[in-house]
Design a protein around this nucleic acid. Sequence first.
DNA 1: TTGCATTATGCAATCGATTGCCGAAATTAT
DNA 2: ATAATTTCGGCAATCGATTGCATAATGCAA
Lengths: 345, 345
Amino acid sequence: MKIKKRTTIYDIAEKLNITASSVSRALNNSNYVNENTKKLILKTAEELNYKRNTLASNLRKGHSKTIGIVVPRINQNFFSNVIAGIEEATYQKDYNLIICQSSESQSKEIKCVNTLINQHVDCIVISVSVDGTDYQHLQNVLDHGIQLIQFDRVTDELETLKVINDNEQASFEAVSHMIEQGYKRISLLEGPQNLQIFRQRKTGYLNALKKYDLPIIDELIVENAWTKELGAEATRKLLSLNEPPDAIFASTSDFSALGVLEVATAMGFKVPGQLGICGYSNEAFTELTSPSITTIDQFSSYMGKTIANLYFQEMENKEDVEVVPKIISIKPKLIIRSSTKKNGD
Amino acid sequence: MKIKKRTTIYDIAEKLNITASSVSRALNNSNYVNENTKKLILKTAEELNYKRNTLASNLRKGHSKTIGIVVPRINQNFFSNVIAGIEEATYQKDYNLIICQSSESQSKEIKCVNTLINQHVDCIVISVSVDGTDYQHLQNVLDHGIQLIQFDRVTDELETLKVINDNEQASFEAVSHMIEQGYKRISLLEGPQNLQIFRQRKTGYLNALKKYDLPIIDELIVENAWTKELGAEATRKLLSLNEPPDAIFASTSDFSALGVLEVATAMGFKVPGQLGICGYSNEAFTELTSPSITTIDQFSSYMGKTIANLYFQEMENKEDVEVVPKIISIKPKLIIRSSTKKNGD
DNA sequence: TTGCATTATGCAATCGATTGCCGAAATTAT
DNA sequence: ATAATTTCGGCAATCGATTGCATAATGCAA
């Protein structure tokens, strides 16, 4: 790469025999420049192929018009959809996105957050990694005067803005649906219980059982079965029980549900006749398996837009009022497909 | 948000009765500071919760340790995997990623690129949008001394670093495979021909036909069938022909192939018996459909890593030699599944 | 014509970190 | 003991854009 000297406002100023102040003002469309000089400056800037140095500008202005995002995995459908949603909403306001992935490791998450603080982002949007236990790094974000928005996987140890799904309700509805379909021994595949979302989903499951007076059977509740492999493994055990479940709610993800489906099919269980299956997230593939998988849609892209708008709204009345921890809860939707149609309606 | 004053090197300097120079040197682990003072500075920085202002640092240093990425859609599997790959490789070197999506619109692509230039990114990684015709904005990147790496969807109008798939070869192999399976009237669903990747895939298709002495039948070549809907529509027409094809190569994407499969099944065509289907990209769902879909894996995440490494490599010998346009071609892999097993082997 | 407001522009400080240059102090060599 | 070298740390300029303050120029009214 040849190192080229980039045009600055001083170059423009020099060429026109004026000062950089005026150039800056013209470029920012200030009123304190003569219309004609403004036009001349704009024309010259164009000619010299001038591009504002955002680094300098932001340094001076004290903000960066940048939002940092930290997610466990960029290429997981749910997250990439949320990001796409945020991007869409922020793009219009000329904001940039710096994206990091924590790869489900808190130590990397901490590094990411620190980098974003260094970058002077105006806001950090985060969905915490699975192994999180300490949240000092998030407190740190607030201490540096940076807006913090948690979404989906949130921690209650901090009072921040949050955009979440109503996991409990969604889970409750899913399990209720299965019960109404006639399933009676419904197994739950849990996610790591240190994450709130998975605790909530469990609560929803328990509430549904209670509502329909079904017993809670411990051996049907499997801890930590949140990947396809773990889901498959759990299913192998469950279906080998003396009294196997007649339905499995993979509350952790559709991937887990997929593992269930594959094992069940391999073991000769008829889905949904002998075994009902429900996943979580509405991944694209759930529509394509045979049978198609009942699941829960989280409106991921809408969630992204909501996050962005929440930020902008907070910015507007930032002087007005004291910060109140604000929580926006989006109600997910149960998508009923073939894998839970016991009655075959 | 309360506005808080952030700790600067001056605060640290003042507290220790030294100058900011020393603090800066200590923080950068320079040799020109006494070991003891260095330790003291580091300790004080920690105590005051100091975070370097990367904006100021980068402004001074003239680079940003940031790579900008522009893709048509963030949440498309292929792209999010490439991004994840880039992230993984750059994270170790403390680089940041700014990610933009062009939403398949060149005008937005241009805005994205300009933003990235403003941000003083060190490198721009781009896969161009479908409606691209003019590439002045990319030339502009080079003119500003910014490294430019094109990937997947590249334009030959510019001599830049490129990381691509060998689309022609992959396409050739896919079609050859179908012919060897006994399919004789193979239809091609084309993508927009202004994109090189789709032209190359067409060439591969034609070459395979030629190699096996099969005629090129115009009515079996469908322009612009690159979404699920367009693929479905094209299939409806193709299968209604007097002499319908006995195989369809959806060279554009697996989504298109999915459209084909759904329509074919709905119209009562047996796949793969009466109709062979091959997609492109190895989307996760291709494994899950019934029958599973034969497709081509592009090693997307590996591609991302390759892009990052290419950049780092170029950085290292940037003074050494004149820039040579370098093209890295990754050979994709044909994944043979059920949808093309005419002989049922 | 004088006085006052309005508009346009320049001056210089500022944002925070980095770095070349210089000199003082400390160490080593002669 | 003196000279030569190394180590350490300060000074001040710099990166490029922004902005409060001051001043000059212009317009308008009295």
